[in-house]
């Protein structure tokens, strides 16, 4: 017994190291398999406020380019609005499926294998997990964790990310993944071989998930190859968004999402 105690005391640093290492591994592996850690993320008050303060200062440097982007977007939206047929069926707001909320990115990252952004809107503004986040140009990611005033967003530049996407004007869906190699390029897989694919075609979100509305731009086809089993294409997609430079974002709330999820759950339970 004495020898066991001595052994433990002699190697107490090693035991401490192993213990701490295991704790660290558990944190890491937990968030590999399921959602990002609930307790250790930058949407928390302290980190959120610090990033917010920093963003308040650094925002001034990009005001000009940000303004240009927003004016361009306004231009496009006005164009769409004025060219719409006057008798088009504008439904009343209560019938509309999607709500849009604006926010600002206060922390961006794209150099890791699992990238997250932090935005300055949280539960108080009605942000919940699994809402879609887009910029004025295209898709950005999905909300993962929220606190009162902040939220973290799982970027599409995240090896865990998987988003339903399709080639514009076709109805063939695939899923959008990222292989962590280049922050300007993502991969679209599972597009069947029979689909005519052209370099330069636009990739947009598909309507198969309740997170994003259909037809939000993602990028253009850079190269494509048949996969190993020769049955479907692996497509490299050039992103429309410059992921290194993102400020203003929009969060999309799908009013029917809960209903859809409930239905899906019922269907699965019934099986």
């Amino acid at each position: 017994m004495q020898r066991i105690i001595n052994f433990i005391l002699d190697n107490r640093n090693t035991f401490l190291y192993v213990l701490l290492f295991v704790i660290g591994l558990v944190f890491t592996i937990q968030s590999h398999t399921y959602h990002h850690s609930k307790y250790f993320n930058s949407s928390k008050w302290l980190s959120g406020s610090l990033y917010d303060t920093k963003a308040d200062i650094t925002d001034y440097f990009s005001l000009k380019s940000e303004n240009k982007k927003l004016i361009k977007e306004n231009e496009r939206l006005k164009f769409l609005l004025y060219n719409q047929q006057s008798d088009s069926n504008f439904t009343s707001p209560s019938n509309m499926e999607f709500e849009v909320q604006s926010a600002k990115v206060i922390k961006n990252s794209f150099a890791l294998a699992r990238n997250y952004l932090t935005i300055n809107a949280g539960e108080k503004s009605g942000i919940k997990q699994d809402m879609g986040v887009i910029t004025s140009q295209g898709i950005l990611g999905v909300v993962e964790n929220t606190s009162n005033n902040f939220a973290t967003v799982q970027s599409i530049l995240n090896t865990k990310s998987s988003i339903n996407a399709k080639i514009k004007h076709t109805d063939y869906f695939g899923s959008l993944k990222w292989n962590a190699r280049d922050y300007r390029v993502v991969q679209l897989i599972d597009i069947p071989r029979s689909v005519p694919v052209m370099i330069g075609d636009t990739i947009v979100t598909g309507g198969m998930s309740s997170i994003f509305p259909e037809n939000i731009p993602i990028g253009t086809i850079k190269t494509y190859n048949l996969n190993q089993s020769q049955s479907s294409y692996d497509i490299e997609v050039d992103l429309i968004n410059d992921m290194a430079n993102i400020r203003a974002v929009y969060i999309i709330k799908n009013k029917n999402r809960e209903e859809i999820l409930e239905l899906e759950k019922l269907t699965i339970d019934a099986q």
């Binding site: 704790i23 660290g24 944190f27 850690s37 930058s42 890791l112 973290t152």
Partner: peptide, 9 residues
């Protein structure tokens, strides 16, 4: 890690 959202790396 908390600040950079890197789990416990």
């Amino acid at each position: 890690d908390i600040f950079s959202d890197t789990m416990a790396l």
